[in-house]
């Protein structure tokens, strides 16, 4: 496969995989926490949080990208601090691409997991509490196993979104080969140059293959988890 793809194309595929995996690793824990808060807790500002979570889904991706640039850029309020404290730089790095992908995937991750949490009977969690289990233990041993199919679905959905993310990424971290040129950016670039059609087509094929593989894996995992949960 490495022979079949040119070095530049291969670079884009590898980068996209890396960026998307990181995006999911980043957004899953926050996604589960946010989904749990939205599904189970009542607190002031819940609707505001819900709105903020969904913003990337509604806003034009370019707007999200620009907001990220303003916030997480070298001179941005958060970006500057992260650079000073941890030496963590997002602007025009693959880390920024991962951040952009995570933010764009976040609403999808939260929605899938929230639906799963809402489907869990809270009376099961009550039953666990009457048996002496503290809240966190109840979450880890009852809630989490029961929502696993939803978590897997959310992760796959988020991964697919991250793989396809274009607008926010190109606005936030530009389109630097080897650094921030993900699959969609690469396809876009190849289409802009004469004779790039073949490269673009090969990357399109890779995109389709990755999407199909992700879907298959998620189906298998979700079916296995659902079988465990059904209790049969």
């Amino acid at each position: 496969m490495a022979d079949w793809l040119g070095p530049e194309e291969w670079q884009a595929v590898a980068l996209s995989l890396k960026v998307s995996l990181w995006a999911i690793v980043l957004s899953l824990p926050f996604g589960i926490l946010t989904a749990y808060a939205l599904a189970r807790w009542s607190f002031p500002g819940k609707q505001v949080l819900n709105g903020i979570v969904h913003l990337p889904l509604i806003l034009p991706p370019v707007v999200t990208g620009y907001l990220l640039l303003l916030t997480f850029g070298r001179r941005g309020p958060v970006g500057g601090l992260l650079d000073d404290w941890f030496g963590l730089v997002f602007a025009f790095r693959w880390t920024g691409a991962a951040l952009a992908a995570a933010i764009m995937a976040f609403p999808l991750v939260v929605r899938a997991i929230r639906l799963a949490i809402e489907a869990v009977d809270p009376r099961l969690e009550q039953a666990a509490a009457t048996l002496g289990a503290p809240r966190l233990w109840v979450f880890a041993t009852v809630t989490l196993p029961l929502i696993l199919p939803g978590v897997i679905a959310g992760a796959i959905l988020g991964f697919a979104k991250a793989m396809g993310e274009f607008g926010a990424t190109i606005t936030f971290v530009s389109n630097i080969p080897g650094q921030t040129q993900t699959l969609p950016s690469a396809i876009y670039t190849f289409l802009q140059v004469p004779g790039g059609d073949a490269s673009a087509l090969r990357l399109v094929a890779v995109s389709v293959a990755v999407a199909m593989a992700a879907l298959t894996v998620s189906e298998v995992l979700a079916r296995r988890a659902a079988k465990r949960v059904s209790g049969a």
């Binding site: 009977d121 009376r123 099961l124 039953a127 009457t130 048996l131 029961l146 949960v229 059904s230």
Partner: peptide, 12 residues
Amino acid sequence: GYVFQDGRLFPH
């Protein structure tokens, strides 16, 4: 120890 009307066993 609470025994509920509907059992509430952990299905998984």
